[in-house]
Design a protein around this nucleic acid. Structure first.
Length: 302
DNA sequence: ATCGGCTATAGACTTCAGCG
DNA sequence: CGCTGAAGTCTATAGCCGAT
């Protein structure tokens, strides 16, 4: 059904319904990279208004995503699971909301979210569409593409900038770039500054100050996320002796975590952080500045 | 206050010998 | 061979204590 039929209002929709539908159609067009000029004419709105609508709707979608995440956490900890809860815990729904929020925000198709999220200056929807049409939606593909070809489909300055950003992204990550999750947000931040002998970290937007021992354990777990397959580190690599369970227990307690939440155990004597590399940010400068040899050594491996 | 050594206990899970 | 129960392993959670 197009706008004209809707405007004819054969379905007896209220004007409020029509307004909502108009925004839906508008945003859908925008995601499919219909040129802004066309959208302006079709919906009789100017670009500024269109961007504002996208911004607001994206924010609401992002909120819906956050709620779905919270509810699923609550449900995971409860015994009573209804069909509704299943819908809310559904990973697909969460991912859908998150992706849609970003799609609406940037006004690009799903496969181009990562590209838009690179925030390359002046790389707007239209240029992104050219990249998508040339099967260059993934950073890795752009990395492998000759700069001369990029210059043909993008203005030279943007092409050079894009190449550079993509190269930087891959050098900070040891895995191939296609595995990088562009949706990832920082969940754990190792700040590394100290407050009265306690070390600052931020987990899920909540700040904690850890004892040296707990902090060291956390840093070792982070290092394993970077260096080991699946991020598992055996307790004997964590520490000598046989107190590891106790120290992990103390670390969890200082982070207000329950067992198996964020810090997992695999039943074979290994522990890991249930986080992706992209979800962890380490302030290396701070850590090195503290001058602790052991900490410096760990930072060197990141 | 923090750390690390030692100890204990409950519970989940695995292994294995012995039995029918 | 499959089943069962005992023994063993591993973890989470603790407590106590002495050193710093």
């Amino acid at each position: 059904m197009g706008l004209k039929e809707l405007a004819g209002n054969n379905l007896g929709l209220t004007s409020l319904d029509l307004r909502k539908l108009k925004i839906c159609f508008l945003l859908a067009d925008r995601i499919e990279i219909v040129p802004t000029e066309t959208i302006e004419k079709k919906y009789n709105l100017r670009a500024g208004m269109i961007n504002q609508i996208a911004e607001q709707v994206s924010w609401l979608l992002e909120s819906a995503y956050k709620i779905s995440e919270l509810v699923s956490d609550m449900v995971n900890n409860s015994q009573h699971i209804t069909i509704l809860d299943h819908m809310l815990t559904n990973l697909e729904l969460k991912n859908f909301l998150k992706a849609l929020a970003l799609q609406v925000k940037f006004g690009v198709p799903k496969e181009a979210i990562g590209l838009a999220n690179l925030h390359v200056p002046n790389l707007g929807r239209v240029y992104i569409q050219r990249l998508v049409q040339n099967d260059l939606a993934q950073a890795e593909k752009i990395r492998q593409t000759d700069i001369e070809f990029l210059k043909k489909i993008l203005p030279e300055k943007i092409a050079l900038e894009l190449k550079q950003v993509v190269a930087e992204k891959s050098s900070t990550s040891s895995t191939p770039i296609q595995e990088v999750d562009f949706f990832a947000e920082v969940k754990l931040e190792i700040d590394g500054s100290t407050v009265k002998n306690r070390w600052k970290v931020v987990l899920n937007q909540i700040q904690h100050v850890l004892s040296y021992c707990s902090f060291k354990y956390l840093l070792k777990l982070v290092e394993a996320v970077y260096s080991k397959p699946e991020g598992w580190i055996h307790k004997l690599d964590l520490d000598e002796g046989d107190n590891q369970a106790k120290y992990i227990y103390r670390l969890r307690k200082e982070l207000s975590l329950k067992a198996e939440e964020v810090i997992e155990n695999n039943g074979a004597g290994s522990y890991r952080l249930n986080l992706k590399k992209e979800e962890v940010r380490v302030n290396k400068e701070n850590l090195v500045r503290m001058g602790e040899e052991e900490i410096k050594r760990l930072v060197g491996k990141l």
